[in-house]
Design a protein around this nucleic acid. Sequence first.
DNA 1: TCTATTTTGTGTAAAATTTACACATTGTAT
DNA 2: ATACAATGTGTAAATTTTACACAAAATAGA
Lengths: 246, 246
Amino acid sequence: MAESPKETVQKSIKTFKVIQSEVQSINRVALSIDCVIFGFDENKLKVLLIRSDLKKFQNKWTLLGDLVKPDEDLDTSAYNILKKRTGLSDVYLDQVHTFGEVSRHPAGRVVTVAYCSLINIQHHRLNILDNEIHWHEIDNVTDLAFDHQKIFETCYRWLQKRVQEHPLGLSLLPNKFSLRELQNLYEAILSIKLDRRNFRKKFFSMDFLVDIDEQEQNVPHRPGRLYKFDYEKYERNKKKWSGIDF
Amino acid sequence: MAESPKETVQKSIKTFKVIQSEVQSINRVALSIDCVIFGFDENKLKVLLIRSDLKKFQNKWTLLGDLVKPDEDLDTSAYNILKKRTGLSDVYLDQVHTFGEVSRHPAGRVVTVAYCSLINIQHHRLNILDNEIHWHEIDNVTDLAFDHQKIFETCYRWLQKRVQEHPLGLSLLPNKFSLRELQNLYEAILSIKLDRRNFRKKFFSMDFLVDIDEQEQNVPHRPGRLYKFDYEKYERNKKKWSGIDF
DNA sequence: TCTATTTTGTGTAAAATTTACACATTGTAT
DNA sequence: ATACAATGTGTAAATTTTACACAAAATAGA
């Protein structure tokens, strides 16, 4: 039995009422993920940015992000952004902070969950086809669109702290690396100079670097030994108690 | 000029279309805040819980939370929950993690931002009128409603770590406190025993406890000296570099 | 093939921090 | 006044951190 026009209209109105009440009774917000993707290349810490697609912010750079789909967990959504933009699927990824200021986004209320990701830039290099995406040196990251500067800085500080307590920095290096590369990485992230002997002593004493009995290739000087990270050993021995100190 | 019934209907349909397109084009989610509110009383770390108002979860306890209002920043929303539930407006509050699993809430998709709050239970005691709200000892917190057990445990671990690096634990104590109380607090939070002499030495060397030349009252033994926390001194002297160690 | 150059790789002594541990003092309660 | 209970303090040993210098290995260029 076909609906009369009147019935159709009444049904529409009913549906509208339902949706309206739903919209009004529960305040829903648009939810996005923004990823601060770090890489390490030429002894510099870098971050992957894309040109803004909003007219208001043309010529500004933004973090890589997207809206969360209805059937996506937050971690999954972040993972999908990484996969889509870098082609990499085995990456370090960690939630850092959620930014939800009422007027942080010009298009209305959008709450965003910031993730920090660390990738091995060598693996990734092949996958940058889109010339609107670029690696930027940390020091040159200024004046991002929206509140992305703030998000970036929060994630950078988070990384600086985190890297002192967990071996996540190794995700930025190739599987095989020299101690010099590792030290350069730490110096770049923390923006400090470290004593080479003490740095080595420290890492060897933590005892999860495995000497793989290979050497650097194609370096214009005495090559260094290469190591890999023994994740299992780290998990077994990592310290739980750091002690009260502030 | 009064609208004709037809005009009214057409207007309604138009409005419906607009809302519908808005609702469908951007996937919105309900956003809530959940607060893990810690207190310290009788030498026990406690957390403030409320009985679930959902039939499905009757008899279960939940964290204190609420939906985020359209004009509320996230921090503000958390602050308002604290204020409403405890009457306290000068509390320690920090965002910890956002939980957004697709099916974490029975009523549909609700993403929640978890905050950790520390309050001085003495100040607060007067304000618990609602007998559906109770302080629970940490060890007895099991089987909370929704995913609140997971949220609680995340925040508790966060607190255990955080309290070793920042003086936020002092928010759980009265303004004047003895070193014994401070040590009891740390032992309760970290669930360990500490050496009294070394604990004192450590805190005195950090040098932001001010001896206010008063003593404990009404203790059935020799009273201890009372101290207060010099926030300014802490800010000036807090260490930035902890060193690589994991 | 020799030489200069650059970077790797290693050890030790001093300083600072952390740990383990015991006894005299002060106030309360009986 | 006496027993009790918790405060308050010092030191020696062990560990960790820091500062620092020189020999060995490989490359580059004469």
